[in-house]
Design a protein around this nucleic acid. Structure first.
Lengths: 171, 171
DNA sequence: CTTGGAAAGTCAACAAGGCTGACATAATGT
DNA sequence: ACATTATGTCAGCCTTGTTGACTTTCCAAG
């Protein structure tokens, strides 16, 4: 389990990694091709609603944190307010998202998915989870753990906190 | 090493995975945030050249397979020839890519990076490799192996062959 | 040798979704 | 009172994707 070296994938013995440019290049392409697969299923669904990935992202994070503010969403998504606003306006107009004026601070708008919004969210995330689940099952528990460890290291530190916000303990 | 369960990440004992929707959602967000980090460094460099990610992708795969044809590139990148052509034209006009008419089949164009093109390629891939290397080192060899296993499972089968083409043994 | 079809290039038009800049409004905090 | 913050909005621009139509070049089969 430690001394076999199939196809240049496995690295070395103890903790020193032999990272050739070639191996790094393979990691880069893995990210590229996998991300395409990762987005493929939701993209197909979104076409039927004539929405794009930007709408999906907004829906995802509103669903994750109901009542989140526009500003919070902006810092997660890393786009301009004009870009986000265009997307949110469409979702509100179409009745998928509700925007409630804040009670404590009336400048803020708190965002929620409506019933309709939740329905689309479920369709999108179910498709994406199915692929993720299949990949996780085929890869096995240790691989899943490694997958998450590497991805977390790849994030910008600012984003890492948004990621960790969703830790299981939080609920 | 097998029975500890830090922060809901590690799964279970033998080979049956407890994959809650919550854990899958975390995997989904990991992909989202990590991909942003993954592209951040090259994106910054590309701005100086007023190129975009599409140019980066073309440059990457031409560098990986010098002499590749337009058609082959199309099937890897999964865009329309019109989209790719726009990008290639810019790169050829700017002297980063050379397009040679095929010798056997003169309809085909074989693509190569010029010296200038190779210089930009090195700058882009070095930035991207640096982040990948740092992530791999911080995560450790086992995590790297798992990372690759999961990502490969996440790809569409059609793409998996393009990924595997780059196996070490191939050269 | 003719002809069908594949490979490539090109033009036009369009849409999504980024961006900047400028400006308006309302509420908050000092 | 005043500066700041949160949000929304208008206008315009860019990249990168799309479709559809059309041409040129060339290989290969009839």
């Amino acid at each position: 389990m430690a001394d076999r070296s199939p196809a240049g994938v496995v690295i070395s013995g103890e903790s020193l990694l032999f990272l050739t440019d070639e191996q790094l290049r393979r990691g880069i392409e893995a990210m590229f091709f996998a991300y395409r697969g990762f987005t493929a299923d939701p993209d197909r669904i979104l076409q039927d609603y004539s929405y794009g990935r930007a709408h999906h992202r907004a829906i995802h994070f509103i669903n994750r944190s109901p009542g989140t503010t526009v500003n919070n969403l902006l810092s997660i998504l890393g786009v301009t307010k004009q870009s986000l606003n265009r997307v949110l306006r469409a979702l509100v107009d179409d009745g998928l998202v509700e925007s409630r004026v804040g009670t404590r601070d009336k400048r803020e708008r708190h965002l929620f998915l409506t019933e309709t919004g939740q329905t689309l969210e479920r369709a999108l995330s179910e498709a994406q989870r199915n692929r993720m689940r299949a990949a996780f099952r085929a890869a096995g528990p240790d691989a899943v753990s490694g997958f998450r460890t590497v991805l977390e290291q790849m994030m910008d530190p600012d984003m890492r906190k948004h990621y960790q916000d969703g830790t299981d303990g939080a609920k």
